[in-house]
Write a protein that binds this DNA or RNA. Structure first.
Lengths: 232, 232
DNA sequence: CGGAAGGTTTTGATCAGTCTAACTTTCTGA
DNA sequence: TCAGAAAGTTAGACTGATCAAAACCTTCCG
């Protein structure tokens, strides 16, 4: 009897899951280190693993809901409304990630996919309960800031380990949420948010030799080093 | 590039969420106290809040996947495969309910809807972590048995408080997952799994007067009493 | 035993999300 | 400057899940 015609459960956020994924992708592409004003169709498609036409269609729908400012052939950017919605999803994602690591003992490399699904079905009530259970945290396991309930998010640095000079001592701020295998590896090497790292040398080919505390040195490649952001 | 064509994230259980809901509904209708062999289209439709044609269509698909034995015009019953799948979903549902109550402090009346959404996105890994965090429980907050990972489920009694004789002392086994308002009320009255209750008298009109420990007596109506099952 | 009643299935439509193929716009470099 | 490449959009089709309306079985009763 409910006049809901969609076949899917009502989303807590009021927006359909796929649409929330697009919001997140556009947010990442426009506020990230790559700092473009607008996210291109192709970039969004790549981010989400869908084809360009799918993106085109979705952007039209999002524009009609005033979530994005979409200029054909030029790309899309979030409206204030869209940005707020994106940050709500990101907040849920990061709270869930932290919860899974801290309260359920999952590894930081396995929580991303789980959170990707859970973020769409967490009610406001549950979100608040998780937040409280974690003591109102402001960082997720990768060091990413958790937006507060009003969607405020502190500015972050975009200096990466890749750009660190040999001899420097740096503090890890956060590690991008990426390939689980690499994350697991970084975790084992002690490259986690908060860790203080000495850049021993740059190897030929670009790899970086690091030392953390009294551990034996580790060497990481460009791909990984570019995903590791530093304080300051 | 993934050849997944459905548009939705792959379900942990391998079955689509809506389909899982049908499995649960058929399970409830065929193993419940109402004990029919087959669940009718209409009953399933009522259970899920959809129309009969939707059920018909879904039953055809489920039959083609050998999850149900569907005889047109006569209704559907679960195959062994379908029953296993149903119990997996029920297991996740009940584990989540208990988790939300015990670890996150939600009330037993508010966890059903939440679990209804979460049960479809819990991976095996997360299910196991929740199970472990709860100490491998065998009852959810309403007293319903939690199937084990292999889908075994103990037989349960179907004697209800409605059928209890005046003067009898009975132990509450479980309380059906129903209207949140009523659940909250029962919880406040102390009518929860494990509680020992004295049936003081039957009022005219059918209501039942109860006494629990040293609380002041409470009176509950037929509707509620039929949802409260007793030990033995 | 022949209908009416009521449950069931079929038919045709919609919406969300996706795809491929074909077409259009924009950019870029010779 | 303009032609080809790259990026973007439109068109058409598909799956999943649903609904309303119409057609269809079953059953049971007079």
């Amino acid at each position: 009897m409910p006049p809901s015609h969609t076949g899917r459960q009502p989303q807590p956020g009021g927006l359909l899951p796929a649409l929330q994924d697009y919001l997140k992708a556009i947010h990442r592409l426009t506020e990230g280190s790559g700092r473009q004003d607008r996210a291109s169709t192709k970039a969004i498609a790549a981010e989400l693993g869908v084809t360009a036409p799918s993106v085109s269609a979705m952007l039209d729908r999002m524009a009609s809901q005033r979530l994005v400012d979409y200029v054909h052939y030029a790309g899309a950017s979030l409206t204030p409304r869209g940005r707020r919605a994106a940050l709500r999803v990101i907040r849920r994602h990061r709270l869930v990630e932290l919860f899974l690591v801290r309260q359920l003992g999952l590894g930081w490399e396995e929580v991303h996919d789980e959170a990707e699904r859970l973020e769409h079905v967490i009610s406001d009530r549950l979100e608040a309960a998780i937040d409280a259970a974690l003591g109102f945290p402001d960082r997720d396991p990768h060091g990413d800031a958790i937006p507060d309930a009003e969607g405020r998010l502190p500015a972050r640095s975009f200096r990466t380990l890749w750009n660190a000079a040999p001899g420097a001592q740096v503090r890890i701020d956060r590690v991008r949420d990426m390939d689980p295998e690499l994350l697991r590896h970084l975790g084992q090497a002690g490259i986690v948010p908060g860790a203080v790292v000495s850049v021993v040398s740059r190897e030929s080919g670009g790899a970086i030799r690091l030392k953390i505390g009294r551990r034996r040195p580790s060497v990481i490649g460009r791909e990984a080093a570019e995903q590791v952001y530093l304080d300051g």
